[in-house]
Design a protein around this nucleic acid. Structure first.
Lengths: 256, 256
DNA sequence: CGCTAGCTTGAAACCGGTCAACTTTTGTGG
DNA sequence: CCACAAAAGTTGACCGGTTTCAAGCTAGCG
């Protein structure tokens, strides 16, 4: 678990549900907030930056197992993960859990809810989670005045269509697992982490439910990958020993 | 195959690639254009309606087997299907075709391209296809002035995330087929067609590639559904004899 | 007529799921 | 700190749905 940036130290203490008060004098954009980063890159004037910033509620921490929202809750906001990992899932007809995605710091949760007025899935914290929460109606309204913000929203939504398409293919257990590991590796690396050594915050069952495999299969593939020298697993700690071979395996899933 | 509305008779003849000239005097919104319909419903003033309309290129017809765009083509426009059926697909590493979707009249093709500057898939006409083509940069710019248009775009994108998630589950061949048939039925019905009798424009292989099954499996399930009195198939002509049982089968896939 | 693409049907193989037993880890309370 | 229980993970044996392979069928078309 990486340490939080110092500017986040003013976040309300554990258990508090209150949004962070907007600070008119000192800007406290968080590094992980995709919107903020995008807008900063685009070189916006202070006024509009302030417009964006006042929409952001810094909420958290949520502790392991706490729900950010549940299926059927009225949809009001999307959220950028600032710290921790979020899992979204639904329960199918037989009560089985179908994991829809894992969201690492910097990634946006709740986009699939936009077309409804209620969340279509549950979101739960897998460890200690901090969020930037945006009122969606407000940010959409602001987007009408900031074209690049609108564009960013379109891009985020469109990207998620592509992601959702990935695991829809009928790939083998090996291909799925390799793609999962490569994807995690790249996403951690994109946030400054180590691309070939990280900690799995999710259980084997979570991974299985995400990849549409049985948890036993996940165990067996981990085992075999280790025997073949591709990875080294010690409980949740993972080392990717042969990233290029994993990428080859994942190639067809990730479409490269 | 349904007859085209009369107002489409002025469309350029077969083989022409030219967009339909914008007609300043007489509005010729097509019934199938989702954007136009939405904006009409929202009760917009004539001026803005005109703004939207001048963005629309009426293109076509494309004949069976003709490509609307190919993977890697520069992305410029999304398109509403006005008539006919479009199939989108990619070729995976082994050269196998992976069908991503079928688009009936009124549906939008190309949304997943927004996050890139190139189309991430191929789109081909399965029969004679007419399109309304929108320059995406232009329509996004217009959306900054028409909030409900922006909202409509957000909703369309978000819906596609949900759709893509549907077939990602590990469902049985029966569930997949039932969901496919029910979905087609509803989409035809939404456009004034018969919900329990329609023509499949796609081959068994297309269906199989879409549902991630072998084409033999599609054949066998069709057979069994017919033996069980659920449907009646004669080549591509299909009757749904027991829609409610099909819906029950499809329930877990369609999440109801 | 015969060719071809699309489709159907049967038999066998296989991948992954299910079931069951067991081990390891984690958490809790005395 | 230990005892105990519950959760998570591993491993093996078996089973079943789908795919694969192979052969034959049908409709459409030159």
């Amino acid at each position: 678990m990486r340490a939080l940036p110092s500017r986040l130290s003013r976040i309300p203490a554990v258990g508090s549900d209150e949004p962070m008060p907007a600070d008119g004098n000192e800007y406290n954009f968080c590094d992980t907030c995709t919107f903020s980063r995008t807008c900063l890159q685009s070189g916006y004037d202070k006024g509009r930056l302030r417009d964006l910033h006042v929409l952001i509620d810094h909420v958290g921490p949520f502790r392991e197992g706490e729900h950010l929202f549940r299926e059927g809750d009225p949809f009001t906001a999307i959220a950028a993960v600032r710290a921790g990992v979020v899992k979204t899932y639904v329960n199918d007809a037989d009560g089985r859990e179908q994991v829809q995605g894992f969201f690492l710091p910097g990634e946006i949760v709740g986009l699939s809810a936009i077309s409804h007025d209620r969340y279509p899935c549950n979101a739960v914290a897998l460890d200690t989670v901090q969020l930037c929460r945006f009122s969606f109606p407000d940010i959409a309204a602001l987007a009408t005045r900031i074209p690049s913000l609108q564009q960013q929203l379109f891009r985020l939504l469109s990207q998620d269509i592509g992601k959702a398409t990935l695991l829809a293919g009928n790939y083998s257990a090996d291909e799925r697992m390799a793609a999962f590991l490569v994807s995690l590796s790249r996403r951690y690396a994109a946030r400054g982490g180590n691309p070939d050594r990280f900690h799995l915050v999710m259980t084997r069952t979570d991974i299985a439910n995400y990849l549409r495999l049985a948890s036993e299969t996940v165990s067996r593939v981990f085992r075999r990958f280790q025997d073949e020298g591709l990875i080294q697993v010690d409980r949740r700690d993972l080392r990717l020993l042969n990233l290029s071979r994993l990428e080859t395996l994942a190639r067809s899933v990730l479409r490269e």
